[in-house]
């Protein structure tokens, strides 16, 4: 009897076990990136860049050529690769400490130059790898090892909304936020990733997809509770959706939402 394969490991994913904690969504995001790369037929000409963070070993998990960047510098490394070999499909995979704290300058300028690379930005509102310290994306009141009483916005400021901030730039053209905490959201996230890689394949533009992600270990909750916490606490502050597309005319930034505009004038 002939077998029909309905589900298998994507070719772009290596046949190894990851080191991620149970319930961590890094693995799901890896898989979706790999599926998209396979579906678009890009594996043989894709080079990825791993960050410093829990996904530092991503180069072992993807079956393709890879660079390991220093903390936060992946967008600069991506720039070097893409400028050296414009035919390559280049993507960075970065956490929120990596991208939104130490690497803030690199991501903003990479986006603003319109480097034709794709950034997969995994926002889990914490520093996972170093043991749960406060990230620039940590929620107000959220407990972390360096804010044991919860993030105090008077001291640490409000969490940075990367997608909104990058969207204020004129040059970058595909900027979106998605989540993977339930299968339905994950389907949408994969679609965002597909679009991001397709724009790069077509040579269109810089693309960034922020993916809300869980860190049950450092949030100190079981995986199921972590997904609920993400939905309840993170999603209202980090709204999902497509913020910019290359088709949308003059690439003008979206106007600020009223609540944000009030903040500005205070």
């Amino acid at each position: 009897m002939a077998e029909t394969v309905v589900f298998s490991r994507p070719q772009a994913l290596a046949a190894v076990q990851t080191h991620y904690c149970p319930g961590c969504t890094h693995g799901v995001i890896h898989r979706m990136v790999a599926e998209v790369i396979d579906e678009l037929g890009l594996r043989a000409r894709t080079v990825g860049i791993a960050p410093v963070g829990c996904s530092v070993l991503a180069y072992n998990y993807f079956a393709m050529d890879f660079h390991e960047a220093s903390h936060g510098r992946a967008p600069a490394v991506a720039t070097g690769i893409k400028r050296a070999r414009p035919d390559l499909i280049v993507f960075t995979y970065q956490g929120d400490g990596d991208l939104a704290s130490i690497g803030m300058a690199e991501i903003v300028h990479c986006a603003n130059r319109g480097e034709k690379v794709t950034v997969v930005f995994v926002n889990n509102a914490i520093y996972g790898m170093t043991g749960g310290q406060m990230a620039p994306t940590t929620m107000p009141g959220q407990v972390a090892t360096t804010c044991p009483l919860g993030r105090d916005v008077e001291q640490a400021g409000h969490p940075i909304r990367v997608v909104e901030m990058i969207s204020t730039l004129r040059t970058p053209a595909f900027v979106a936020r998605a989540s993977v905490h339930t299968p339905l959201y994950a389907v949408n996230a994969k679609e965002m990733l597909r679009r991001a890689f397709r724009y790069q394949k077509d040579g269109t533009c810089f693309s960034l997809v922020e993916v809300l992600s869980t860190c049950p270990t450092n949030w100190g909750m079981p995986p199921a509770e972590a997904t609920r916490w993400l939905e309840k606490t993170m999603m209202p502050y980090y709204p999902l959706g497509v913020f910019k597309t290359p088709e949308r005319g003059d690439r003008a930034p979206r106007p600020l939402a009223p609540e944000e505009a009030v903040c500005r004038t205070m």
């Binding site: 080079v47 510098r73 600069a76 490394v77 720039t79 070097g80 050296a84």
Partner: peptide, 9 residues
């Protein structure tokens, strides 16, 4: 770091 990427290529 751009050097790093270009050289690695």
């Amino acid at each position: 770091n751009m050097l790093y990427g270009a050289s690695g290529s």
